[in-house]
Amino acid sequence: MNDQLLVATRKGLFILHHHRDGRWQTAETHFLGEPVSMALVDPRDDTLYAALNLGHFGVKLWRRRAGAAEWEPCAVPVYPPQPDPLPEPLPDHPPAAPWSLQQIWALEPGGSDQPGVLWAGTIPGGLFRSDDGGDSWTLNRPLWDRPERTEWFGGGYDAPGIHSICVDPRDSRHLTLAVSCGGVWQSHDDGASWDCTSAGMEADYMPPERREDPNIQDPHRMVQCAGTPETLWVQHHNGIFRSSDGGAQWQRLFAQPSSFGFAVAVHPLEPDTAWFVPAVKDVCRVPVDARFVVTRTQDGGASFEPLDDGLPSPPAYDLVYRHGLAVDATGLRLAMGSTTGGLWLTEDGGEHWQCLSAHLPPIYCVRFG
């Protein structure tokens, strides 16, 4: 069971430790006052990474090796020179985003057989690989040069972004990505070639003739069941989707009080169990009827139950971002952080929640380590 919780916020990185008496307490605070967009503990060597988005001062990446007291700067992904001029945008599409790093939106380790390999998903939609623990980065050109990428567009941000990277635990060469807005993409050869695998997803925001276009889907977050990697779950802009065949086909599911949201977590051993945080869709983006709940399915999406024991009583307007919900290796302990600075934890799969803090800065990401 993981006894460390990373909480990346608009005003710093907070690390909580679990004590033997059951208490969780903030043990470390780093980068106070600075926006931390992503954090990671590499399970292969316990190195800690933190990605910062400093706006005018750019994107930064820091690393703290296991046992070390100090952080050290890493390289950040750098895009190659941008062609001049860029191709004209397609009809009804915004101009192409500049070839310049705006944010590290996903950071994942490679497989256990790939020491030093890291994958970074970025805005404006580039996938980068490091083979040396963040000392250097290379843009994955086979994905970046796909002609379909010219149709990608921004969802939560002006430019498209890769926010979810799943490395198959059985085969490190098998990668599955989710792009907002650009659908789901897979490689079976370590990124040398890619296929768009969004069949079955539906984009209600598009004209009828393009509603099922796989390349313009808006997955908000995608997760893979570690014990049954063929099962993937997606919280999409237009609902909840599940695949039981490795993403070849997706099934749309409907939940109450809403199928809209940003976060999803899947049980690491039980592929039919997943958690979501519902909200009112589009411009509103607050809990339905101001009732803040987590919904859980234990039957593959055939039914959903709302869980709110220990969560704020109505009216509550907490929103949980894409990376604001995490589950540990047991499938029983989950952590959740909201845009209003609330942090909750459950030790029994969501049946009961305890508030660890109600006064943190807006939370971007929670991860066990």
Rank of each mutant, 00 (worst) to 15 (best):
A326C: 08
A51E: 06
W144G: 00
R252P: 00
P83S: 11
E351L: 07
T295C: 08
R129S: 08
P169H: 08
L319F: 14
D204E: 05
G300K: 05
D245G: 04
A50N: 12
T228H: 15
R211F: 02
E88V: 10
G154T: 02
P109E: 00
D132H: 08
V223W: 00
H174W: 06
G300H: 04
L319G: 13
P169T: 01
D282I: 07
P81E: 09
D309H: 09
L61H: 08
R285P: 01
T138E: 03
D145G: 02
T339L: 00
G133N: 09
S258L: 03
R23T: 15
H93T: 13
F368L: 05
D3V: 15
S338C: 03
Q354Y: 02
L54P: 10
G350C: 07
T228F: 03
G156V: 05
A50K: 11
V293C: 02
Q25R: 15
P219K: 00
V7I: 15
A302L: 11
T228S: 10
D131S: 12
Q235I: 00
Q354C: 03
D218I: 02
L48I: 07
R141Y: 00
S303L: 00
G156Y: 04
F368C: 09
F260R: 12
H18I: 05
R322F: 04
L139S: 00
D168N: 15
S338L: 03
P257D: 09
G182A: 06
S338V: 01
A106G: 12
P278R: 05
H236M: 07
V76K: 08
A255C: 07
F304S: 01
H267Q: 06
I363M: 07
M38G: 10
E230A: 12
G191V: 04
T297V: 00
P98M: 07
G261E: 08
S244A: 13
G133Q: 08
P306E: 06
I15Y: 14
D309Q: 13
G182E: 01
F276T: 11
I104M: 08
V266L: 06
T346M: 02
R252H: 14
F304W: 12
L54M: 12
Y364A: 12
A274K: 03
D21P: 11
D282M: 09
D272S: 15
W99K: 04
G301C: 00
T340L: 13
V280Y: 00
